[in-house]
Amino acid sequence: MLRSASVFLTKLITGVNPVWVDCQQHSDKLRVYFANHGSHLDFATLWAALPHAMRERTRPVAARDYWGRTKLTRAIAVGMFNSLLIAREGITRQDNPIEQMAVAMRAGHSLILFPEGTRSFDGVIGTFKAGLYHLAAKVPEAELVPVYLQNLNRILPKGHLLPIPLISSVVFGAPMQLEPGERKTDFLNRTRDAVLNLMPHAHQ
């Protein structure tokens, strides 16, 4: 009930229009959706853009130092969106985000991941952190789906509390995988380029 209300509210604010390019909406395989990051609306919007059956088994990955701060932020992240909260810093053997993501995937969940690690201020897509590479190596059967989120950083930019009602779109690209023997930097550049290539031409 609360979840369908949040899907409706997200779609109302962001006018979201999902576009599937070379990517099936439904898949029985585990997936990691990875996208550019510029707004608090990003994970709710990507999550709301998924078909219902896929959404039910997909968990956003969010920073524990940010979303675990207060009871309210934790209730939104975990209670509403079933997020997996991970450490961005101070990683130990007991508190290893890659291991926690792999566990969630082995339990049958797909993940939403923002490999830049933080929200971009001006819409420019930053370099990808290594997490996506380590996860792809650890769960090689997963499909890695590049996603471009358009206009969300204009609807609710970093540093603002109130959204303006522009129309966003979520573009899903062709699933990828870590190639045998592919180097970390090559893989991270290739996945970042895959997101960049989904950008509509008018906005480049």
């Binding site: 201020f121 204009r154 603002h160 303006i164 009602p165 129309i167």
Partner: peptide, 25 residues
């Protein structure tokens, strides 16, 4: 509202326009 939404979506805006656009809408 729907027309203005389409119009502003299609024109480039900057981070610093957020409050004035909020006021417009």
């Amino acid at each position: 509202f729907l027309a203005l939404r389409e119009f502003i979506t299609a024109t480039p805006t900057r981070h610093a326009d957020h409050r004035s656009l909020f006021a417009a809408f």
